[in-house]
Nucleic acid binder design. Structure first.
Length: 811
RNA sequence: GGGCGAGUGGCGGAACGGUUUACGCGUAGCACUCAAAAUGCUAUGGGAGCAAUCCCGUGUGGGUUCGAAUCCCACCUCGCCCACCA
């Protein structure tokens, strides 16, 4: 008997699939298309992470099943290769990022191939390929043309030790992601993308009636919270004693207009323009300026730590008028009010807002109740209630009052109904080398000039040094012969933009690049029909951590490209699911420093790709985080060994019949088919195991049953399934077979284990015919010795009968 | 502070109103072997008992129900994401 030699088997089929271009998707095939997508990896120096491969295995199983169901499946792969770690490595070693990327992608490719994923390698993409980022830049220019890419002074996170500006996502707990040093907010001109212009559609299209996407509910919820829509009103508070000849006011945004009679002061953010505009009127300007300076100096870390303790200073000498009651209220500046949300100013209602309550207590300010229902001597009452102390609005419910007060506001032109979003525009500039250059030229005469589309791509220049400059500009700023160019408009001296794009740029449209990858990615009309054929993506799986990053960004880009007529669907993804993280064996997040990283090559060498794939599916619920267990994989290897032994030692023939096994097969087909669709891979594997345990007991197996089993096993363990399939004498690959259907008639049992309960406790079980009546069940139950013993002395009050399940006798 | 999710054997987990612990790991005993590994067979929640059998068990405390791991209420613990969003 030949032993299960996974090394030999896996090498053989790997070669076979590659040589026969097995998994290439056909453009415009007559079969129905199915586009399934995984998040393409960032090719880091550490090699493939098991976190990647668990979700890749899952999608690979789905892709393989779909092919067998008759679909023309696009299951592509590529590299999201721009990014900081590669640049940092280049800074350290002096090796060009291009070379590092090449080396890393080679490793990743080899590792992915070793695991037998059915990717269409003919469509491999790489975001750092100039032919690719040409189109990333082209999309940027379209944003620019429509006014959705613009420059703005923005506070960025400045890392003192790296001398570099960091994006928000590069700052963890106020510290620099790469060196762990403290960061501070600094103002810098940044390129922005106006994602907020799409906030409303990004929100509405999630659900009917406007849209309706098949995303996991928690993903929708997270996107909704991130977009953070809130309805309210903007109210204009005039300054009561403006400088002669001027008229000044402060606009505040509130969702609780009903509490406005409880407003006892205003608070503005330190950056608010009113401070500059009324400098001459502010009597304690020195104190105010000092406070503002202190706030600026606060690092992100300090701000986070001090979040609870509120500070502020009154702007003495100016007051504002509440339009509802013409009352004069003092104005404070405080950094708990954010410049970037709403109008950068709030009306403070200490009686009905916790933050205002804290602040008012600390500075001894008036707390006036205007909504009844709480006890404001103890704490702020933040719920809705009945209005009091509110003039003509007294007695109304909060809800009614908001309506009426908004009407009053609009009629008297003191403000209007407004919708606010938490979502901010996307800071699109990075001061790094290893990213797509932003295709803009700055000319002294003409100002900002976009690079002409025919001059794309703006290629990254080859350099020796990648360190950031002392000024915080991108390393590109040091490369004189690249920076200095002629202005495309006037021909005069001009400079290139030296900021590059964030690594989210290339991944915001990569799903469009796969269909086009054989045509140089050309996004224009000539290729429209390719996108029309393949889009939208039918199933996209990825990590929860990308819900508000890649997932939201790419929905935004797709919508924009839809608006300008490049793509044919306004949403890129029909369905989105997510996977749980794989933790280290110690239950901690896997990281090199903790030394708990699982090495793919070792696992494949010791257990084989099939066992590895199977274990990743079997280890636990797909959507949940789960620690790696190096012993667990022994079990799936043992299982494959059993499958192999059965194929080698049992008498498998089409002359054999086995009704019982046939029934089990059909149950298994049903369960595996359904579990794959629901991503319950762990239970799918367990029922494959149950089937094999049964086969192992037998000496003779019907060939047809065994073959069907191999087909449903094949997406999980493609190598061993192919090998056994071939050994059975089949000439064509197992993946050319169609997915088996179960026969509903065959899975019905004709007997069942009836549970007999007495007073709700299980006292006996008995195997009986299916579909017996209550009367029959009672008779059977009462004839049992055990039951008789329990009933002895008691009287039967009632029996509860659940057909085909149990009978409960109450005495 | 807010949002999402999870607490079941020694461990990963099944079950998601109806026999708690499917499947796998681990452990113990047995078989094969000179021996080991591999493999196979048997057992394996806790307690009492020679046994049949009984009692107790799904984070804690209540509730609904003939019946609750599952539904409802309150609480505790853990994980992830967001966080002064007016």
């Amino acid at each position: 008997m030949e032993k299960y030699n996974f090394k030999k088997i896996e090498a053989k089929w790997r070669k076979y699939w590659e040589k026969n271009k097995f998994y290439q998707a056909e453009d415009f095939s007559k079969k129905p298309k199915y586009y399934c997508l995984i998040e393409f990896p960032y090719p880091s120096g550490e090699g493939l992470h098991v976190g990647h491969t668990r979700s890749y295995t899952a999608m690979d199983i789905i892709a393989r099943k779909r092919r067998m169901e008759g679909y023309n499946v696009l299951h592509p792969i590529g590299w999201d290769a721009f990014g900081l770690p590669t640049e940092n490595y280049a800074i350290k070693t002096g090796v060009h990022p291009k070379i590092v990327t090449k080396k890393n992608t080679d490793t990743f490719r080899r590792q992915l191939k070793s695991l037998g994923f059915s990717f269409d390698w003919s469509r491999e993409i790489n975001t750092t390929d100039p032919e690719y980022y040409k189109w990333t830049q082209w999309i940027f220019l379209q944003f620019y043309k429509k006014g959705l890419a613009y420059k703005k002074k923005m506070p960025i996170n400045w890392c003192f030790s790296c001398k570099i500006g960091l994006a928000n996502e590069e700052v963890i707990d106020g510290r620099c992601e790469r060196c762990g040093g403290e960061t501070e907010k600094r103002e810098k001109e940044q390129w922005m993308l106006a994602i907020t212009k799409y906030a409303d559609r990004l929100l509405k299209d999630l659900d009917p009636p406007a849209g309706g996407l098949d995303y996991l509910e928690k993903i929708k919820i997270q996107q909704k919270n991130w977009i953070g829509r809130s309805e309210g009103a903007v109210i204009k508070f005039s300054i009561s004693n403006p400088p002669a000849g001027g008229q000044f006011s402060i606009n505040v945004f509130t969702t609780r207009l009903d509490t406005i009679f409880g407003c006892t002061y205003l608070v503005v953010a330190p950056e608010h323009e009113i401070i500059k505009n009324l400098e001459l009127k502010i009597k304690n300007l020195g104190e105010v300026k000092k406070y503002i300076d202190q706030t600026k100096k606060k690092s992100d870390l300090q701000r986070t730590e001090l979040a609870k303790e509120k500070t502020g200073v009154e702007l003495k000498g100016i007051k504002a008028i509440n339009p509802f009651n013409n009352e004069e209220v003092p104005i404070f500046v405080a950094d708990y009010v954010l410049a970037s949300y709403g109008t950068g100013a709030v009306m403070a209602v200490p009686a009905h807002d916790e933050r205002d309550y804290d602040f008012a207590k600390k500075y001894n300010l008036v707390i006036r109740e205007s909504v009844s229902g709480g006890n404001i001597t103890k704490q702020a009452f933040v719920n809705d209630g009945i209005l009091i102390n509110s003039g003509q609005f007294d007695g109304m419910t909060s809800e009614k009052a908001r309506e009426e007060m908004t009407k009053w506001l609009e009629k008297n032109k003191f403000g209007k109904k407004t919708i606010q979003y938490k979502l901010r525009d996307w800071i699109f500039s990075r001061q790094h080398y290893w990213g797509e250059p932003i295709p803009i030229i700055h000319c002294n005469k003409c100002g900002e000039v976009p690079v002409s589309e025919k001059d794309l791509p703006v290629k990254l220049p080859d350099v020796k040094k990648y360190e950031p400059t002392d000024t915080g500009e991108s390393p590109l700023a040091n490369i004189k012969n690249w920076v200095n160019v002629k202005c495309p408009k006037c021909g005069g001296q001009a400079k290139r933009e030296t900021d590059t794009m964030p690594n989210w740029a290339g991944s915001s449209w990569y799903y469009l690049a796969y269909p086009l990858s054989r045509k140089n990615y050309k996004l224009q009309t000539a290729n429209h029909k390719l996108l029309k054929y393949w889009m939208p993506i039918d199933w996209y799986n990825g990590g929860m951590e990308h819900t508000t990053l890649n997932l939201l960004y790419s929905r935004f880009w797709n919508k924009f490209l839809y608006d300008i007529g490049v793509v044919s669907t306004s949403e890129p993804y029909k369905k989105r699911t997510s996977h749980g993280m794989i933790l280290g064996e110690d239950g901690e997040k896997m990281s090199k420093s903790k030394g708990n990283v699982v090495n793919h090559d070792d696992v494949v060498a010791n257990f084989g790709a099939d066992a590895f794939r199977l274990y990743q599916m079997f280890m636990g619920p797909f959507s949940q985080a789960i620690p790696w267990d190096s012993r667990g994989i022994e079990g799936t290897k043992r299982f494959l060994g059993k499958v192999w032994d059965i194929s080698q030692t049992k008498n498998i023939s089409d002359k054999i019949n086995n009704k019982e096994l046939e029934k089990l097969l059909h149950k298994t087909i049903k369960k595996v088919s359904e579990d794959i669709e629901d991503m319950n891979f762990n239970t799918a594997v367990s029922c494959l195991m149950i089937f094999i345990n049964k086969c192992y007991e037998l000496n003779d197996l019907p060939k047809e049953i065994w073959e069907k089993f191999l087909i449903i096993l094949s997406p999980f363990a493609p190598f061993v399934a192919e090998e056994i399939w071939e050994k059975l004498g089949n000439k064509k690959s197992v993946f050319m077979e169609s997915w088996p259907k179960y026969n509903p008639k065959l899975i019905i049992d004709d007997v069942f284990e009836m549970v007999i309960q007495i007073n709700g406790k299980v006292r006996d079980t008995v195997s009986v015919k299916k579909d017996i009546s209550q009367k029959e069940a009672e008779d059977i139950a009462l004839s049992r010795e055990k039951v008789k013993n329990w009933i002895k002395g008691g009287k039967i009050k009632k029996t509860i009968f659940v057909p085909n399940r149990l009978i409960n006798i109450l005495i």
